[in-house]
Write a protein that binds this DNA or RNA. Sequence first.
DNA 1: CTCGATTTCTAATACACTTTAATTTTCGCC
DNA 2: GGCGAAAATTAAAGTGTATTAGAAATCGAG
Lengths: 234, 234
Amino acid sequence: MPRKTPSREHAETSGTKSARTRQRILDAAAHVLSRKGFAGTRLTDVAEVAELQAPAIYYYFPSREDLIEEVMWSGIAHMIDHVQQQLDALPDDTPALDRIEVAVEAHLRYQLEISDYTTASIRNSGQVPENIRARFSTEANRYGDIWRKLFQEAKREGSIRPELDLRAARMLVLGALNWAAEWWNPRRGTLDQVIRTAKSLIRAGLSSADEADTPEPPTQRSRGRAKKSAKAAS
Amino acid sequence: MPRKTPSREHAETSGTKSARTRQRILDAAAHVLSRKGFAGTRLTDVAEVAELQAPAIYYYFPSREDLIEEVMWSGIAHMIDHVQQQLDALPDDTPALDRIEVAVEAHLRYQLEISDYTTASIRNSGQVPENIRARFSTEANRYGDIWRKLFQEAKREGSIRPELDLRAARMLVLGALNWAAEWWNPRRGTLDQVIRTAKSLIRAGLSSADEADTPEPPTQRSRGRAKKSAKAAS
DNA sequence: CTCGATTTCTAATACACTTTAATTTTCGCC
DNA sequence: GGCGAAAATTAAAGTGTATTAGAAATCGAG
């Protein structure tokens, strides 16, 4: 686990100074929340990371819970945007398993490379109290729908082995991805390596065809189909 | 997620009354810790679940942190016992992929069916402060070793596709398992169904052979090998 | 350079939670 | 059936943290 990198995230870049400070606070909150959990997220710590005094936070957010609520929400919301964008860039006739691979890559990249927010959302989805959940749950369900649809299509196409329980398989796959933030460390292997392994593992795990090895490489940046739009999302 | 089931766990059964109360407190702590996170685990809540007053906890544990430390530690320690026991019951010539399937089943069963402790450990491994980590980390590494060895053997046997990064594959698999506690709900599908899907998904995902479907069923409680000793671990 | 709004800070309040102290209850045993 | 240790309770201390109040600093525009 990468330590002590107060995450530049995307703050410091655009908008008025006020907007940038607000963003700095959000980034700091995402950073702390992802590491300390809901109850462990103290405004003093957030303030320290954001380089200001705790009460200043109240100029931008009505309460600690509102701040956290916004982090939780945007964690998934941005993930959805990112993944959906990658999927939309695919040709309509893209096979379902290829789509799933694209979603796998998009999910891992966003979670590991880009966002403390998503890690914060994922790790705390079970810990935040009811009153924070509302907006977050809505988005979480939307994200679930994306994956549900991907798997259903694959099933309909006959690309998924029939003995697999579709819901269980989907959740196991998502679990493998979500958990990656707990162990991935850039110093112990490149992100690309992880992505390649995940795609291969998942495709082979789901696939009914006997194409386990080198299937016709949608494994990586195959026939230039999506991929180009990847940078647009950051 | 199963709500409001203060977990009978194994308390109330054996030993002196004092030992049973101590166990009740531990069980309660595991329950709260798994749901509220390290910082969110208040002694008042633990006490409520254990049906006594908060200060009574100090008769059995020197401090809140000591209590939590013990929960964290035993979460993995018991998991190790359970999984190792299942593996030891296998004949020496059991193929590596079959061993992995047994470990998958043991892990899922223990985590989902038996223990709040393991869920507590898993969910909080990144949240507890340094001073609690020591004993816990040692066990966590031991558990990692078990899986590392399983995967290495499979690799040596040539049962795992060579293009898979071994560490990444192992962690992705463990992630899929660990995450199961976040979504599995007995009312939305049986545990057996989840286990069957996980085994199938993982075997097909890793395997270099083209035996994806019905391999020769180590899929379930095949040749009556382990299984009987399952209850002994609790 | 100065005025007024915006932004941030310091000081103080209020409350929740761990932990200690002192007291009471429980319960096996003579 | 009442004595003494064990177990649990109530009351109180002390600390940390969200939040509020009020004052200072910053900063853009005239």
